[in-house]
Design a protein around this nucleic acid. Structure first.
Lengths: 211, 211
DNA sequence: CGTCGAGTTGACAGCCTTCAAGCAAAGTGG
DNA sequence: CCACTTTGCTTGAAGGCTGTCAACTCGACG
């Protein structure tokens, strides 16, 4: 099993804002996150930034490295990160969806497609709702949700870079959501009183945010 | 080789607007497009549509089917399509980037990430420029560009659903690009007088639109 | 010759951005 | 332990990019 491979390796640590991978640099190993959050992003010449992927505890970083090629986007730690290393080529024998890597690859493609819909066609409130629902459900799958709440280390600037909005508008949108009782969000903790209500606000189809 | 596998199969045909795949229905076979265009998309309950992937001649449809799971989004023919069928599981022995499927999977992830940046952070003109550059470069790689031109069967409505804009604004944006001499686009043919100029208008980083 | 889809144009509204200022909490150095 | 700075969050006012609504043209098609 992959987990056994992983457990043969000693854990590595990254501080907040440290790079897990850089553009066009061959990664030393695939990482299996044990603790902490990270993100993949691209920076435009004029400073605009778009986050293109989030890595939460339990996620592989990055499954596509098993396919060969070099990372085209940097990956940076959002919080301090602890991870296990595993060789990028450990998985060649079976990427068929019946093991972790195939599923992880599917999830990446699925989530990216969902975000294309959100960034292309949804309003600010729908975008933020999508993000919060996805975060909560992924944390819950990782066993890191406690009732209706989970940790949420993202700053409003990072939420903006994820949702394609400005930090100012993210702030106004969150306040509006708080006023409606849709979310409680303070000191890095997220609480969602009614998940189904927030899913509807986010215009999430049944298959979305399930991945 | 994959191509030999493919050539063992007889070609299948789809008419314009016919489905190559439907949501949650197991596809009969992976398709290797020989002629015609198709797209993957999602429809929101209120009618908003976002195209999440384009399939051009030479593309596999869809590489991720080799990973297992069911398609979460429908795929529909934009023009009439001719394609070769190959079994979804033909590739299990090697998805390592040294054959067509691994590369195809990488390309899908890479292109989706590029579009996340465009939909999240770019202006209308940058979005349309990105699309036209990508289409031209993919057609050229497929051997279907002739000098500075290639076929471009998309309607302005389809361009809008790809770029996250309204058809009206796509129209205005295209006119503005024509007025600046950036593109010539008429009767389903695209000509790009200066590709590099259009790349810059699209705020494309070196690695973008290369996939 | 009527219909339909695609493209085009104008007027107006609105969501979101930009710019700016102020506040609180956390980190830093003396 | 207390300035001082930094980071993150908040709020207001004004403007712009894009959306909405509507009407018109044109060519393809039957």
């Amino acid at each position: 099993m992959l987990s056994q491979v992983a457990q043969d390796r000693s854990p590595v640590h990254f501080r907040m804002h440290q790079f897990l991978a850089r553009e066009n640099e061959k990664p030393e190993a695939m990482l299996h996150l044990q603790e902490g959050w990270a993100c993949r992003y691209r920076l435009l010449p004029d400073g605009r930034r778009q986050i293109t992927g989030l890595y939460l505890p339990g996620d592989y970083c990055d499954p596509q490295w098993a396919l060969g090629g070099l990372p085209s986007q940097p990956i940076v730690a959002i919080t301090n990160v602890r991870a296990l290393q595993l060789p990028c080529r450990a998985s060649h024998a079976g990427l068929d969806g019946h093991n972790g890597f195939g599923q992880a690859l599917s999830d990446v493609i699925e989530r990216q497609a969902n975000w294309l819909v959100t960034l292309g066609r949804k309003t600010a409130m729908e975008r933020v709702a999508h993000l919060l629902v996805e975060l909560f459900e992924r944390m819950r799958k990782a066993g890191l949700a406690y009732g209706q709440q989970c940790a949420m280390p993202l700053t409003q600037i990072e939420i903006a870079d994820m949702t394609g909005l400005t930090p100012v508008h993210v702030n106004r949108t969150l306040q509006s959501m708080r006023a409606k009782g849709l979310v409680e969000l303070q000191s890095k903790w997220l609480r969602i009183p009614e998940l189904q209500a927030l899913r509807e606000v986010g215009a999430l189809t049944p298959q979305e945010a399930a991945a």
